[in-house]
Amino acid sequence: MRFYHPLLFALDAERAHRLTIRMLAAWGAAGTPFADGPDDRHAVTVAGVRFPNPVGLAAGVDKDAEAVTGFFALGFGSVEVGTLTPRPQPGNPQPRLFRLVEDRAVINRMGFNNGGLDAALDRIAKLPKRRGVLGINVGANKDSVAGDSAIADYVAGVAKAAPLADYLTINISSPNTPGLRNLQAQPALGELIAACDAARHTGGKRVPLFLKVAPDLDRAGLEVAARAAIDGGIDALVVSNTTISRPAGLRSGNAGETGGLSGAPLADLARAKLAEARAITGGALPLVSVGGIGSPDEAQRRLDAGASLVQLYSALVYEGPRLARRIVKGLHRNPSSSS
């Protein structure tokens, strides 16, 4: 464990997360210098957007866009904020975030807790010049999903966020909002993509639109999602979110908690889904690999397997704030660009 773990691990997981966000927000607001100057060795272009490096911060870490500058200062080439919903919502009851220390994993059932799209966009509009790519991840309010008006929420999110985003992600893959994953199937998925495609144009600009799917889709389900994405003009597929499955061999006492599992035990499934997505799309759609990435070797493995970008989340809990920079420095091959 690193030097900061005794303090943070003395707190429950959600309080530790909030403290980390506050510290990074203050660090960024203080004008923290970037540790390294510009480095183009690992730059990659995806969906027409130039990423300084292929290592990104996954959605779910900085839900409300409070510490964007701080995360860029840690070396991330991209930061994806959210998931943001049109209206603020508290999420699921606490406790809802659990460390599985023995497994280097996390289980969460947060439920799209966030302060609402408008508050986050106001923060983003006030950010200083960004040193990386900003993605905005949008979702639907829980009561909208229950009331069959989820697509309207996504359209509202895309339309409002488009002027401030370098790319947008439609998140239909969280296991913690009942009914949300039903949007991964047809005909709802096609309707959703078409509606969001119409909403993403702003000031004559067509903002890239990514689709985030669950690792629990079987191959047939992934084929449906990938085909809908290609046919609907989606610019990249994010593979994938947390899993409701539980791999054999988990040792932590928290392994039985309800929610999505992330971290090291997700790596095998994430690799398998990346391989499936690559085979299904045949390179027709850029892929973003997420899940169980905690080292330069693992990140390189995903890039070699066909990912254009990778994203981190749970590994930061165990590897610490230097992880993104360490991974970027450890990459030995520049990923291929995808327009």
Score class of each variant (00 low, 15 high):
Leu274Gly: 02
Leu266Phe: 08
Ala275Ile: 08
Leu303Gly: 11
Asp268Phe: 09
Ser295Thr: 14
Gln311Asn: 11
Arg278Cys: 05
Asp268His: 15
Ser308Glu: 15
Gly294Cys: 05
Arg271Trp: 09
Leu303Val: 12
Gly292Lys: 09
Thr281Ala: 10
Ala277Cys: 14
Leu287Trp: 05
Ile293Cys: 03
Leu309Cys: 06
Ala279Ile: 02
Gln300Gly: 13
Ala299Pro: 00
Glu276Lys: 07
Ala264His: 06
Asp304Ala: 13
Leu269Thr: 14
Arg271Met: 15
Leu287Tyr: 04
Leu269Asp: 08
Lys273Tyr: 01
Gln300His: 13
Thr281Cys: 15
Leu287Thr: 06
Lys273Ala: 04
Leu303Cys: 05
Leu303Asp: 13
Asp304Met: 09
Gly263Asn: 01
Gly282Glu: 12
Gly306Asp: 12
Asp268Met: 14
Ala299Leu: 04
Gln311Glu: 13
Gly294Tyr: 01
Gln311Asp: 03
Ile293Leu: 03
Glu298Ile: 12
Ala305Phe: 12
Leu287Ile: 13
Gln311Ala: 15
Ile293Ala: 07
Val310Thr: 11
Leu266Thr: 07
Leu303Gln: 13
Val310Glu: 08
Ala305Thr: 09
Gly291Val: 02
Val290Asp: 00
Arg271Ala: 11
Ser295Ala: 07
Gly283Leu: 09
Ala275Glu: 14
Gly263Val: 05
Glu276His: 14
Arg278Met: 09
Ser289Asn: 07
Ala272Phe: 11
Leu287Asp: 11
Gly306Lys: 01
Glu276Gly: 05
Asp297Thr: 15
Ala270Asn: 02
Leu309Ala: 08
Ile293Phe: 07
Val288Pro: 00
Leu309Arg: 03
Pro296Leu: 10
Leu287Ser: 02
Glu298Gly: 14
Ala284Val: 12
Gly291Glu: 03
Ala267Ile: 04
Leu287Val: 05
Leu266His: 10
Asp304Val: 06
Gln300Cys: 08
Arg278Tyr: 08
Ala277Gly: 12
Leu285Asn: 07
Asp304Tyr: 01
Pro265Ser: 09
Gly291Pro: 00
Gly306Arg: 00
Ile293Met: 03
Ile280Phe: 05
Pro296Arg: 09
Gly294His: 11
Pro296Phe: 12
Pro265Gln: 11
Ala279Met: 02
Ala299Lys: 13
Ile280Tyr: 03
Ala275Ser: 06
Leu303Phe: 07
Ala299Gly: 14
Leu303Ala: 10
Asp297Val: 14
Ala272Glu: 15
Ile280Pro: 00
